[in-house]
Computed example of a mutant assay.
Amino acid sequence: MAILIVADHDNHTLQAATFSVLTAASEIAKHISDTELHLLIIGNECQSVIAMAQGITGLSKILVADHQIHQYPLAENIAPLIFSLVQEQGHCNDENREFDKVEYSHIITSAGTTGKDYQPRVAALLDVAQISDIISVESADTFKRPIYAGKAIATVQSSDAIKVLTVRSSAFTAASLTTELLAIESQVPVAALAAQADSGKSAFIKAELTQSSRPELTTAKIVISGGRGMQNTDNFELLYTLADQLHAAVGASRAAVDAGFVANDLQIGQTGKIVAPDLYIAVGISGAIQHIAGIAGSKVIVAINNDPDAPIFDVADYCLVADLFEVLPELTAVLKVKG
């Protein structure tokens, strides 16, 4: 019996979300006797990712599908690969390229944009239900997940033979990674999977990536977000300056994104990114329920808004009713002096 974890990576490094998924998988494994954790890496020329994965505590095996068709994470190619692997109930042995019988009880990955794309397809191919965005493991077949934009938590039990799950990475602490050089005999064994044909159903055209020296939004310890109250794109410079002082990531509410103030990849909330920083600062954000769902895991929430009745104040730990255009420059100046 084994749990199959599908890794998030960019062909160079493992994404932080994968380490949280590993923690969730470990919690599931505690409820199953004699189970193993297998990590599936799907990519192209991803040797550095494999080397990094070999330092993860608790893994029994690493399965690698390294082929040109997987250079970009196309769900139409990933889902059939996972399905064929689970359908065979095994994995390829490097030496003789035969399948050792391994029964997978769970297929698990992060609830990011890529995982949300291929996991439903995997579930459909297996004719099982998918359980999305789990935040807690109750047993091997029972999980908790938020519903109604986080206003309620549902406890879901699955009777399917194979559980297909996505994990809200902010709800689980990251698994440990060994940074020391490992002896060959202590490294996690790697098994290469045979290449599969391109499905031909989709093709990668281009990627438009936002370059930033600031921390990544979903893993940052401090996040500063702006809402409709910022009024325009130029005013977001106030947040960028403050973020640089605090070494923070910058986000935005959906209203700010829809208004064109910032790019879509900065959106936080139910339809954007889920964050759980040590400190979340909401500036000019009213606090729609969809936004609150995306920041509920934050340890400390600070809200700055000139409306004393703004819903954001209901969830904030510290509330400041003031004009953001006066507060932000003052706060930046104070931090500059103390820095």
Rank of each mutant, 00 (worst) to 15 (best):
Thr57Asp: 14
Ala288Met: 09
Ala24Phe: 08
Gly269Gln: 07
His31Val: 04
Phe99Gly: 07
Lys101Gly: 10
Asn77Val: 02
Glu95Asp: 12
Ile184Thr: 10
Phe172Asp: 12
Ile268Met: 02
Gly284Tyr: 05
Leu320Pro: 15
Asp100Asn: 13
Leu59Tyr: 07
Gly226Lys: 08
Tyr280Asn: 13
Ala154Leu: 13
Val128Gly: 06
Leu328Val: 03
Leu125Gln: 13
Cys92Gln: 10
Lys163Ile: 05
Leu63Glu: 05
Asn305His: 12
Ala154Phe: 11
Leu217Asp: 07
His38Gly: 04
Ser169Thr: 14
Ala149Asp: 00
Glu27Gly: 02
Asp258Phe: 12
Ser33Arg: 03
Glu326Leu: 09
Met1Arg: 12
Lys273Cys: 11
Arg228Met: 01
Asp66Gly: 13
Thr166Gln: 01
Ile222Met: 14
Ala192Glu: 09
Ile147Asn: 08
Ala2Asn: 10
Gly287Glu: 07
Gln211Asn: 12
Tyr148Asp: 04
Leu37Val: 01
Ile3Lys: 02
Asp127Trp: 01
Asp10Trp: 00
Gly58Phe: 13
Thr35Tyr: 01
Ile107Glu: 10
Ala192Cys: 03
Thr155Cys: 02
Thr109Arg: 07
Ile304Trp: 14
Ala65Arg: 11
Asn44Ala: 13
Leu181Cys: 13
Ile281Gln: 04
Ile301Ala: 09
His70Ala: 01
Gly269Arg: 04
Leu59Glu: 05
Thr114Tyr: 03
Lys206Asn: 11
Ala111Trp: 02
His12Lys: 11
Glu103Gln: 12
Ile62Val: 01
Ile268Leu: 06
Ser253Val: 03
Asp34Gln: 15
Ala220Ser: 10
Thr166Leu: 07
Met52His: 09
His106Lys: 00
Ala171Thr: 08
Ala194Met: 05
Asn306Gln: 14
Ala192Met: 09
Leu59Asn: 07
Gln231Met: 00
Ser60Thr: 09
Val223Ile: 10
His247Val: 10
Ser84Gly: 15
Gln71Gly: 15
Leu320Asp: 15
Val315Ala: 07
Ala310Gly: 11
Ala191Gly: 13
Lys116Ser: 07
Val137Ser: 00
Ala124Arg: 14
Thr114Asn: 15
Ser20Lys: 06
Ile135His: 01
Lys101Leu: 14
His9Trp: 04
Ser48Ala: 15
Ala303Tyr: 09
Val188Ser: 08
Val327Arg: 13
Lys206Phe: 13
Leu328Pro: 13
Glu103Asp: 12
Leu165Ser: 02
Tyr240Arg: 00
Leu22Arg: 04
Leu246Pro: 06
Ser26Arg: 07
Ile135Met: 00
Phe83Ser: 15
Glu180Asn: 14
Tyr72Val: 09
Ala288Val: 11
Gly294Asp: 08
Asp133Cys: 00
Ile222His: 04
Ala149Cys: 06
Gln157Lys: 12
Asp323Cys: 01
Asn77Tyr: 09
Ile28Glu: 08
Val257Ser: 09
Ile5Lys: 06
Ala183Pro: 10
Ser212Phe: 04
Ile134Gly: 03
Ala16Trp: 06
Thr113Asp: 13
Ser84Thr: 12
Gly251Lys: 00
Pro120Thr: 03
Phe99Gln: 08
Asn93Glu: 08
Ile78Leu: 04
Lys116His: 02
Ser110Pro: 08
Ile147Glu: 08
Ala203Arg: 15
Ser202Arg: 11
Thr332His: 03
Asp309Trp: 06
Asn306Phe: 11
Gln89Cys: 12
Thr218Val: 14
Asp323Thr: 07
Leu320Ser: 05
Val137Thr: 00
Leu63Gly: 00
